[in-house]
Computed example of a mutant assay.
Amino acid sequence: MNRGVGVTDAIRSGVPEWSLEAFSVLSLLGDLLVIIPALGVLYLADVLHSLSRGERNQSLCSDQTAFLVATVFGGLALVVLLKATFAFPRTPAEWHVIEPSEYGFPSGHTMAAMVFWGALVLWLQFDRRSVRLCVAGVVVSLVGVSRLALGVHYLVDVLASMAFGVVYLAAIAWITQERPERAFGVAVIIAVLSAVVTGGSERAILALGGTVGAAIGWWVIERSPVRQQLFETLDHKH
């Protein structure tokens, strides 16, 4: 099967050289270098907001934010698992504008963008949902097109990634009933499977470490003694 269906090579050959840097920047919207810090900022902002309210008997991080963080980590681990399971080759090396990882299906950047931006749309309340959906759709599409323009994926890779991302978001919401502890459990299971299937590849170990670390960090900071200590430290500073 030609996964490019005649589109990828046409885009790659038709994209002017001066635009490639812009496509590289757009690709970052589905990159771990953007997604992981964004999750950290989101989590810290939620915790700091809780501390400022002074509600000592409430969770420092809302269930909504914790569920979102768990969902994204699980999605990132699923990317590693799917790539190793299918193990489909990349596009021809002469098309590559950047140095890609080994496997080309699905598109990791596109799926990561779908999971991250899709989760923001579904579980963060800001602006109207229709506006959020439009913004997320544009961002994910731009990431997908950028991967084609950079010559590292076929069209089928990108479209399949979007489908995988949608199915994953729907599945984890249904399986966990949007409860963060269940979402972290599912995320850890996916990360462990990715480590087993890949034989402990570097990416799989990083995904497992990040997922387990996020789960433990969330669990620890929500323990009552830790919460009280944080509030007492804040009181002393004031």
Rank of each mutant, 00 (worst) to 15 (best):
W117P: 02
R56T: 10
G144E: 06
F88T: 04
S107G: 08
L133T: 00
L76S: 10
D46F: 07
V80A: 06
A84F: 12
L51W: 10
S62G: 08
L51N: 10
L120I: 12
R147V: 02
A113K: 09
Y103N: 04
V79D: 01
P92E: 09
H109A: 00
V115E: 06
A149M: 08
G144S: 03
T71M: 14
C61Q: 11
E99P: 00
S62L: 03
A113V: 02
E99Q: 13
Q64E: 15
S141V: 03
C61Y: 01
R90C: 04
Q58D: 15
V145N: 03
S101V: 02
Q125A: 11
V138C: 11
K83S: 07
L120Y: 02
L142V: 03
Y103T: 02
C61V: 15
V97I: 14
V115M: 08
F126V: 13
F67Q: 07
L124W: 08
L148C: 07
L148G: 07
Y43W: 14
P92W: 06
V131A: 11
L133C: 11
L120T: 03
A84H: 14
P106E: 07
R90H: 10
L124Q: 13
R129W: 12
F86W: 12
V80W: 04
T91S: 14
D63C: 01
M111E: 09
L120P: 01
T85W: 14
F67N: 14
I98L: 12
V97C: 05
L142A: 12
A66E: 12
V139F: 03
T85H: 09
A66R: 15
V69M: 11
V121R: 12
S50C: 02
F73H: 15
V79P: 00
F73N: 10
F105H: 06
A149S: 13
P106K: 06
A45L: 14
A87M: 02
P106L: 05
V138M: 12
E55Q: 12
F88Y: 13
H109T: 01
E94R: 13
E99A: 14
L78M: 13
L68Q: 07
E99N: 13
S101C: 00
A119S: 15
V131E: 09
L120M: 13
V47H: 07
F116Q: 06
T85R: 05
S62E: 02
